[in-house]
Amino acid sequence: MASNDTNLTTRPSVAVHAPGTTVSGADSANASVMQLRDVSVYYGSYEAVRGTTMPIQQNQVTAMIGPSGCGKSTVLRALNRMNDPIPGARVSGDVLFHGQDLYAKDVDPIQVRRRIGMVFQKPNPFPKSIYDNVAYGLRINGIKGRLDDHVEEALTKAALWDEVKDKLRKSALALSGGQQQRLCIARTIAVKPEVILMDEPCSALDPIATAKIEDLIFELTNDYTIVIVTHNMQQAARVSHYTAFFTAEVDEAQERHGRLVEFSQTGKLFTNPADKRTEDYITGRFG
């Protein structure tokens, strides 16, 4: 691993639930690896998401669902500072990773992203060989020697090794969409992050490829904590342990703001939601 000169992991984790958000069934036996406290995300003066408070439990899958424009992807990108390159993007509140605020002044976003990886909506392998796609992250993290072993391990974990072991030098762009997405997952886990963020990872894939990714997500919880944004409620119900339901509120000025409505164990959220808006959404009565 890269040197941990930022002490991102040294502090004890804290789990704080602010009042106002329905948090139920957050199993206290699980440690929360991340914690959002009153997190709002702004683009310029526009508040895209307001006041999100929720935990991310270790080695569990947390799903974020909700209608388009509810800010779920925005919140996800705030978890590893991927909004930083967007001009005018700004985060208020605390995004805690093992108790440390990711937006504190002395925190290096590069280090944050090495610990909290991300898989995107559209498979986005580099225009390089399959091998080099996986090796890229290893190389920039200064992992020297035995790259072959690391590459094989990552591809195996991503359930892709058997399909590509004979064509590692071929272009990654020649793979199918589902294979490309698993390659992107392999690329992400090669650098051994703690948390993997997935932004609608299956929305560009066919049902069979989707099923493979979902199986993989389940497998990955042995080693990783996963946060997945999906517009597909069935998917959230299938793969996640916890679910956060977001919705878009329209304020007096007719501006839409994303808002976390309910966070709870997935089974409970889908069978016995605490909030009327959640119930309307999951039963399809949402306007």
């Binding site: 890269a2 590893n80 991927m82 390159p85 590069i110 280090q111 992203r113 090495r114 610990r115 990886g117 991300m118 898989v119 995107f120 559209k122 986005n124 392998p125 580099f126 225009p127 390089k128 890229y136 992250g137 920039i140 993290n141 992107c184 690329r187 992400t188 650098v191």
Partner: peptide, 27 residues
């Protein structure tokens, strides 16, 4: 160079220069 390629590099913990070498130049 697609935003997605640059995002991919950044999400792996690339610095700006590493992102340029890994995503911008090959493209």
């Amino acid at each position: 160079v697609p935003r997605a390629d640059k995002d991919a590099a950044l999400a792996l913990g690339a610095t700006r220069w590493e992102m340029i070498r890994g995503a911008v130049f090959p493209h």
